[in-house]
């Protein structure tokens, strides 16, 4: 129910923004683009504990997004992300069996294109900020039961779009994120861990570290 309401709200916001943006140019008049992105973090020190301690790792998150140009300098987007961790170990914590974390997220992104000649949305360099909700669940190895939990995500980053053949968007950039539990949350910051389940706490901690810094590359299509 919560998710349905959120989607309705976001779609409404997007349409509202579009209706006030009739005068905006877009790239050759095309305002809506859809993108498929890959977020990755080459963690040299195994920051996300997805492998054996001491080994390096490569965390990835898939993203599908739609972006709507509001005017020459701004665009509003909606993105859906999905990630799944490996079932390797206990995320560095003792006494917990290996577990997987599945995460879907829905986010609203706002991009401000750099005020510079040659930069007209959706082309060029931009600053991006966004917020959304992570719908995660952790499943311990060998267990059929899952522990669902939600987290808030706040993100900011920079990127650059290039357009080839008038339709395809090539994207690269980076992103800093902070995710926090939708309820409680002090557990992420230090010794106080009073969650109902250590596996959940550890999963939240892992997601926080996983999201902290990500590089992004993507391919998009200028729809209309």
């Amino acid at each position: 129910m919560f998710m349905k309401n959120n989607i309705q709200f976001l779609v409404f916001t997007l349409l509202l923004a579009g209706s006030t943006a009739v005068a905006q140019p877009g790239y050759q008049g095309r305002k809506l683009s859809v993108q498929a992105n890959l977020l990755f973090l080459p963690a040299l020190t195994n920051a996300s504990y997805s492998r054996e301690p001491g080994s390096s790792t490569f965390n990835t998150t898939g993203e599908a997004s739609a972006d709507y140009v509001l005017n020459k300098r701004n665009s509003l987007g909606l993105s859906f992300r999905r990630s799944r961790t490996s079932n390797i170990n206990s995320y560095g914590a003792e006494g917990i069996s290996a577990a997987k974390v599945f995460t879907n997220s829905l986010e609203l992104q706002y991009r401000i294109y750099k005020k510079k000649n040659g930069n007209i949305a959706p082309l060029g360099k931009y600053f991006q900020c966004g917020a959304g909700m992570l719908f995660s669940q952790v499943q311990e190895a060998g267990s059929v039961s899952v522990i669902p939990f939600r987290m808030y995500a706040f993100r900011m980053g920079r990127g650059r779009n290039r357009i080839i053949a008038d339709r395809l968007i090539l994207y690269h950039g980076w992103e800093l994120s902070h995710v926090m539990p939708a309820s409680g949350g002090e557990g992420l910051w230090g010794a106080t861990r009073y969650y109902k389940d250590d596996a959940q706490t550890m999963a939240q901690y892992r997601l926080w570290r996983h999201s902290l810094l990500n590089f992004k590359i993507g391919l998009g299509f200028l729809a209309y």
């Binding site: 140019p25 000649n117 040659g118 060029g124 290039r162 080839i164």
Partner: peptide
């Protein structure tokens, strides 16, 4: 008159020219 500190690639030119035409037409 614009100085663009980027390569005059097709996307940059399209974007800039369209913006000019758009302003003329609007």
């Amino acid at each position: 008159f614009q100085f663009i500190d980027r390569k005059g690639s097709r996307d940059v030119l399209n974007s800039t020219m369209y913006n000019t035409f758009y302003q003329l037409k609007k």
